[in-house]
Nucleic acid binder design. Structure first.
Lengths: 94, 94
DNA sequence: ACGATATGCAAGCGGTGACTTGCATGTCAA
DNA sequence: TTGACATGCAAGTCACCGCTTGCATATCGT
């Protein structure tokens, strides 16, 4: 398993997670286009490498169908950050 | 304000946060000794530089008294991670 | 089958970050 | 005041990371 902390350290990777949160099941090309539309200059290869890191960290699930890949977000690995230092929304529930 | 994500990307900095969570108000020397005791090989200067990064990110509060500095943990900047991707312990409450 | 599309793989490059080294500053005790 | 202690500052080194480049692979439409 990859390092979740390292995975979210990069701004481009965080933008990818943002994009996947807004629209699930995107294709690599779709993702690239949208990122470029949001001002990011990342090439397809760069995004692909970022996805590999995110997948290693478990933050992203990649499902392959034919010549496409469909990418989905999985935020559950972020849970360990909360678990480690004990913060979170619940604290403000009362 | 510094980047919280970048701040927690480094294993040594996470160990510092762990140590401060277990024991608040430590001195730089104290912190170094404990980290070395836990198997980290960081020098004093290295730890000092890490603290600067953590302070920039708001994860640590440094209070200076005489020739000592006292370091305290502040986990509130981590909240933005939850706010951004909306996960957390509450989801599994039901 | 053939061309076009969508993605994978690998080597190389530049910049950034973590660490060390050496010295400077400041504070306490005697 | 002087020496020991606790920390700050700055330059230099080295490895890693993100990115590009170029080519390879695989799938769909016609």
């Amino acid at each position: 398993m990859g390092d979740v902390y390292k995975a979210i350290a990069d701004p481009t990777r965080r933008a990818i997670l943002d994009e996947l949160r807004d629209r699930a099941g995107q294709t690599l090309f779709e993702l690239c286009k949208r990122l470029i539309g949001k001002g990011f200059t990342s090439s397809r290869q760069a995004v692909s490498q970022h996805l590999a890191v995110l997948e290693e960290a478990g933050l992203v699930v990649i499902r392959r169908e034919g010549r496409y890949i469909f990418i989905d977000l999985d935020t559950s690995p972020l849970q360990q950050i909360y678990d480690r230092w004990g913060i979170g929304p619940c604290a403000s529930d009362t």
